[in-house]
């Protein structure tokens, strides 16, 4: 069996285990058989299908989106420090969400979904602004231009966020809580809301897996290999932004997943994007499901924001893999 088959099997297995743990562990312990056992306790079935399952699925989708977007951005920008938030799209999404909270906006027919919808609008506007500005500065849209434009817009929107936080009164805790990120109490509607974006964004990236491989050698090299660099770059930037915007809109700015999951996946299974994108997608889902599980159980009944846990768990795991790989490389 070749290395990539092993990678897919291991990643799928850990994902399944994570889902299983995610749905069964909690204040009420649920046997996994509740899933298919129709005659099971009605409360158990309700907890599983109404509370735990949507939470696990949402965590999975958010984690997967951030991780695949991170992998694509790192490859495209040839920068190991790039993550889904590099373009500043997440800051746009955050501003959209915080504006909703700050002004307590509630559009009648949207109701509780006002926030994610505003957040997505914020993300989309930022994406067009960033790409438009980058194109204005430099028609060929070099990687440096894109990164710098992302930094400009990200920091500007970041200060808008800080301003609102500074001026806020009682909503402070709500705003900070949202910014730290959470996937709790969202329900199936949130899933149906982001699912189309996750599918479209992921496919846009996956269709460019070979192009990403070529672009690792630089745009000029990719051009010589026959890649239509301009078009492909645009597709990747838009695909990644769609994923990031959708993820941030439903869960806040959960850090670390988009930066580190691609690195871990690369260290373990190599940097061939034909596999890296899919494997990052699976591993991102796994990691966020596990982190969310820990966030809600570690000091139960109080729940921690999952964004706190991702780095708390993720950093040591990453450190371990990094250390082991370097050791192996040195021998």
């Amino acid at each position: 069996m070749n290395k990539s088959s092993v990678a897919y099997i291991v990643s799928a297995a850990t994902l399944i285990v994570a889902v299983w743990l995610g749905v069964s562990i909690g204040t009420v312990k649920l046997p996994i058989s509740t899933l298919w056992n129709g005659s099971a306790d009605a409360t158990a079935t309700t907890i599983l299908w109404k509370i735990r399952m949507p939470r696990v699925v949402l965590a999975g989708l958010v984690g997967a989106s951030l991780a695949i977007a991170g992998a694509a951005f790192q490859g495209l920008l040839k920068n190991p420090l790039a993550d889904p938030y590099t373009l500043g799209v997440s800051s746009g999404a955050s501003v959209g969400a915080v504006v909703t909270l700050f002004f307590s906006i509630s559009i009648p027919f949207l109701g509780a979904y006002t926030l994610p919808v505003f957040s997505m609008i914020g993300a989309a506007l930022t994406m067009f602004l960033v790409l438009g500005f980058a194109r204005l500065v430099d028609r060929s849209m070099k990687m440096e231009t894109i990164i710098l434009t992302g930094i400009i817009f990200g920091s500007f929107l970041g200060s808008v966020l800080s301003l609102m936080i500074a001026l806020t009164g009682e909503e402070l805790r709500q705003i900070i809580g949202w910014l730290l990120g959470s996937v709790s109490m969202r329900g199936w509607n949130y899933i149906t809301m982001i699912l189309p974006f996750v599918i479209v964004g992921s496919l846009m990236l996956w269709f460019n897996r070979r192009e990403l491989n070529a672009m690792l050698f630089g745009e000029e090299r990719a051009h010589h290999l026959g890649v239509n660099v301009k078009r492909r770059k645009f597709m990747i930037l838009i695909g990644g932004s769609i994923l990031t915007g959708a993820a941030v809109a439903v869960s806040g700015t959960i850090g670390f997943i988009g930066l580190v999951v691609p690195h871990m996946t690369r260290l373990l299974w190599g940097s061939d994007h034909r596999h890296l994108l899919t494997l990052s997608f699976m591993n991102g889902a796994t990691l966020l499901i596990i982190c969310d599980l820990i966030a809600r159980t570690i000091i139960s009944p109080t729940e921690l924001p999952v964004g706190v846990i991702t780095a708390f768990i993720g950093a040591p795991v990453f450190a371990f893999i990094f250390y082991r790989q370097r050791k192996k490389g040195a021998m």
């Binding site: 790192q74 490859g75 040839k78 920068n79 190991p80 491989n213 690792l216 050698f217 630089g218 000029e220 090299r221 010589h224 690369r266 190599g270 940097s271 061939d272």
Partner: peptide, 11 residues
Amino acid sequence: PQLHAHAFSHT
């Protein structure tokens, strides 16, 4: 091409 350094490497 002329030789360049790369952030991530392929086999």
